[in-house]
Simulated assay, not measured.
Amino acid sequence: MEKYGRKKTFGACVILTAAFIFIQFFARTLPVLLVGELLGGLVLGTYATIAPTYASEASPIALRGVLTSYINLSFVMGQLIANGVIAGTSQLSDHWAYSGPFASQWIWCLVILVGWPFAPESPWFLIRKGRFDEAENALRHLASKKVDVKPAMAMMIETDRLEQELEAGTTYFDCFQKINRRRTEIAMGVYSIQVISGIYLVGYATYFFTLAGLPTDKAFDMSIGFLALGFVGTLCSWVLLQKFGRRTIYNTGLAALVVLLLVIGILDCVPGYTENAPLIWSDATRNFENEQNADLVLCS
């Protein structure tokens, strides 16, 4: 991304995603499917890096919080659409029951690749590479015709110069020195908590609801519903970010997650849990709430 730019790297990753979907689509054995999933997962990780970087560098400051949180909304919408497709193909008895959802991913690769040529490169990246004319053209592409991009260009060039002076002679080891250690710990902790909270297991939500005791058809309905709630939670974060700030809703969301996850764990240990329908639905409903709180945390 730092060598070839955000736009080229993103385009290459979309093409790789489309290629690896072929492996998943035509897989007829578990080992082949596993290889396709692993390769696709490697590329998927790049989107979590490229998207927020590009969004923060190409958007105005006023929209930066909304657009970076929109990345999480895109993940939620993708999972919601995927679960809807899976619910529709779950009644099939041939390979299309699982190949169909894989094939539906090609649609979004095509949509992205059609619009990709019209997206400008990050002006910050171009300035770092000394390509000032291209950076000015990118800024003009991002701004309205009434905006004079010259002052913005001057500010960005000066900012880049100061950053290069500050970074001169530094290494990654400096991140762990005493003066920078707290900032490094916070940054690493925020990213780590997103993973260890279990939010990325939502791809197996239907299976979880089935293990929790719900009938298969209800488990599919619940998996669609709780992602819809995550969609609402992301939209709520846009308002909460402006009113309460990132730190407040992040800590509040994590505290709510702790309580909900403890309640879910306790309910699972109740004797006769699998024969108690109210407990099963109560557990699933708390996962509904868990998803909304998780999305508020991720968006902060």
Rank of each mutant, 00 (worst) to 15 (best):
E2S: 09
K3T: 05
G5P: 11
R6A: 05
T9G: 14
G11P: 00
V14R: 00
L16H: 06
L16F: 12
T17N: 11
A18Y: 07
A19K: 03
A19R: 08
Q24R: 06
Q24C: 08
F25P: 07
F26W: 14
A27R: 10
T29C: 13
L30S: 06
V32T: 14
V35C: 11
V35T: 10
E37P: 05
L39T: 05
L42S: 07
A48C: 11
I50D: 13
I50L: 12
P52G: 08
S56D: 09
E57G: 09
E57M: 07
P60H: 08
P60V: 00
A62C: 07
A62P: 10
L63M: 12
L73E: 05
F75M: 00
V76N: 13
G78R: 03
I81M: 08
I81A: 06
A82E: 00
V85I: 09
V85H: 05
S90C: 03
Q91F: 06
Q91R: 14
A97I: 03
G100A: 12
A103D: 05
A103T: 03
S104T: 01
W106G: 01
W106I: 01
L110E: 01
V111Y: 06
I112M: 11
W116N: 03
P117R: 08
P123T: 06
I127H: 11
R128Q: 15
R128T: 03
G130C: 07
G130Y: 09
E134Y: 02
A138P: 05
A143T: 11
K145C: 02
V147N: 09
V147F: 15
V147C: 02
K150V: 08
K150Q: 15
A152N: 10
A152E: 12
M156V: 04
T159P: 04
R161G: 07
E163A: 15
E165I: 01
T171I: 02
T171D: 06
T171V: 07
F173P: 03
Q177T: 02
K178M: 14
K178C: 06
N180C: 06
R181Y: 10
A187T: 08
A187E: 11
Y191M: 13
Q194G: 10
V195F: 13
V195R: 11
V195N: 13
I196H: 11
G198N: 06
I199C: 04
L201P: 00
G203C: 00
G203E: 09
Y207M: 04
L211C: 12
A212P: 13
L214M: 15
T216W: 02
A219K: 01
I224N: 02
L227K: 05
A228R: 03
G230F: 02
T234N: 12
C236M: 15
W238C: 14
F244L: 14
R247M: 12
L254E: 10
L257S: 15
V259D: 03
V259R: 11
I264A: 12
G265D: 12
V270S: 01
Y273Q: 12
N276V: 13
N276Q: 10
P278F: 11
P278A: 05
T285Y: 07
N287K: 13
F288A: 07
E291W: 01
A294Y: 03
D295T: 11
L296W: 09
L298P: 03
L298R: 01
C299T: 13
